[in-house]
């Protein structure tokens, strides 16, 4: 089909609604993160990866440029509008994380979407959020040990909860038939006429 690399309205709509649903889950996560992190620096980072799932999820389903960014921004807006704990900074996080995930898939020219690239996408988002933390959230003010722990754990969590979990969820979704109209399924089908 022509224009197969341009997202259409239906895909944007799907991306946004999926992302807003994820934003809903993010809010539930936030207190868990705060408390765990207070007990041991880096402990909260273990669950941090879920914050990156929207971008990877949508990009894996639609496999077109811009989707990861749209998803993360939409998830962040949803979280913000619903009164998530990070207020407006959520939006900035969203842009940074989405752009990073997007970059990974862009470098692969939106062709390969296997487990490792998805995990890479999640990890990239983690790095972007760390960059933002370094600017505003006091990452730079930590002592070396906790700082490294934070960076390492968040990146790994990003890869696993943001990337691997996204794959598991999408594969389960594919079985429900809801993804029949998207690249992830379509690519595998033969044209009858």
């Amino acid at each position: 089909m022509k224009n197969s690399y341009v997202v259409n309205f239906r895909e944007i709509m799907m991306t946004v609604i999926l992302a807003v649903l994820c934003g809903f889950i993010y809010i539930a996560w936030a207190p868990l993160y705060g408390v765990a992190d207070a007990i041991y620096p880096g402990a909260g980072e273990v669950v941090y990866g879920t914050w990156f799932i929207a971008g990877v999820l949508a990009a894996y389903i639609v496999q077109k440029p811009g989707v990861a960014l749209i998803a993360e921004v939409a998830a962040a807006s949803g979280e913000f509008i619903m009164g998530g704990p990070y207020g407006l900074s959520t939006l900035l996080y969203g842009v940074a994380q989405g752009a990073a995930t997007e970059l990974v898939f862009a470098l692969l020219r939106y062709r390969t979407f296997n487990v490792s690239t998805l995990m890479l996408g999640g990890a990239a988002a983690a790095l972007a959020s760390l960059g933002y933390d370094a600017l505003t959230g006091g990452l730079a003010e930590l002592t070396t040990g906790p700082m490294i722990a934070k960076i390492a754990i968040r990146t790994i969590s990003g890869a696993i909860l943001g990337g691997l979990l996204a794959k598991i969820i999408v594969d389960a979704l594919a079985k429900t038939g809801a993804l029949n109209n998207y690249a992830i399924i379509r690519k595998k089908m033969e044209k009858p006429f």
Binding site: F9, R10, M13, M14, V16, I17, L18, L21, I169, A172, L173, T176, G177, A178, L179, N181
Partner: peptide, 24 residues
């Protein structure tokens, strides 16, 4: 949670498509 989450996401996708169809 798993049993409800996947159908919920699937419903979300279907709803999104329907609205997209209706708006277009």
């Amino acid at each position: 949670v798993m049993r409800y989450t996947i159908p919920l996401l699937a419903q979300g996708i279907r709803k999104a498509e329907r609205v997209a169809v209706a708006l277009e």
